[in-house]
Amino acid sequence: MAAKTLTINGQQVTAEEGATVLQVARDAKINIPTLCHLDGMKDVGACRLCIVEVVGTPKLLPACTTVIAEGMEIKTESDRLRKYRKMTLELLFAERNHVCAVCVANGHCELQTLAYEQGVDHVRYDYLFPKWGVDTTHERFGMDHNRCILCSRCVRACVEIEGAATKSIAGRGAKSKIISDLNEPWGEADSCTSCGKCVQSCPTGALFNKGSTVAEMEHDRSHLDYVVTAREKKLWVTHA
């Protein structure tokens, strides 16, 4: 594989051909915010927080799905990008019911963290206060749709990593909803293996371990990482 040289925020970096801007930036310790990316899963370019400016391209490009090219000049920070990122986060807060004070993931939530990192101290859009339910029918896990940001990480964890495909998205637009099997209560979805990968992949408090109370739910990504790495490197193939 050929190496490509490019600059990110003026810093020269070299990376393997085929790498994405996000990977390269992270390797160079440059933080690009994102909510829908999770290492080990296919990128979908959905949250639009990782948008960056590329010199010579009028469009803003998502770092997670943009593949690097020789001589690329990338800017990950600018007034414009900051403004858009902030607005994106505000839109998310106004969209469903994110009440951090009483959330199981308070203090361990990627949405909450990004909000303060990006300087969101209030939301200018009218809160929509939609009515969404909480599904606690599964014996070990719960899903609070009020806190869901539709990043689809749980769906990808379930389909790509676990292979159970219990989770999918139903409906469309703002009415989109994460479902289990045929939109059944999670506890009745017989394809679910109770592996918990969806729960661990969730960036907010939407998916949680039952019994967690406010601020207790910490998502553990290491397990996902372990499975994905092992699979990619074929660590569990017996060479008999």
């Binding site: 495909a165 999918s168 998205i169 469309r172 099997d181 939109n183 394809s191």
Partner: peptide, 12 residues
């Protein structure tokens, strides 16, 4: 096909 996929498509 997984039921979730069928339901997802039908409601899209």
């Amino acid at each position: 096909l997984p039921p979730s996929r069928v339901y997802g498509v039908a409601t899209f």
